[in-house]
């Protein structure tokens, strides 16, 4: 399977990335190469195989619903690009 320039642009938008004209050629080529590698998977019939999500094949543990962590908002927000009154600031979304 090879990808075209339009496919790359579409994928980039989904991934919140921007690919400029100069890079487009490069990503189209290398991503197509990687998909060529990936397509080798089709050599094997897996219709009767169950998928393996995890090496242990166990379900996630549950824990008691009680408070374990303390409030460390200040330490966590100290490293944020922009905060105000305990909130993370981002560009205005709703006018």
């Amino acid at each position: 399977m090879t990808l075209g320039r339009d496919d790359i642009q579409k994928i980039a938008i989904l991934a919140r990335l921007e690919v400029n004209e100069q890079e487009l050629e490069h990503y189209t080529r290398t991503l197509s190469q990687i998909l060529g590698l990936i397509d080798q998977m089709n050599a094997v019939d897996t219709s009767s195989v169950s998928p393996m999500a995890h090496p242990q094949d166990v379900s996630l543990r549950l824990r008691e619903d009680r408070v374990g962590e303390t409030d460390r908002r200040e330490q966590f927000q100290k490293i944020a690009p922009e905060t105000e009154n305990g909130f993370y600031l981002v560009p205005r979304v709703i006018e």
Partner: peptide, 19 residues
Amino acid sequence: RTQGFGEEVKRRIMIGTYA
């Protein structure tokens, strides 16, 4: 994300996003 990630990371994000 475009400025913060390098080329190989972007490539893998795009492969994964596509898959």
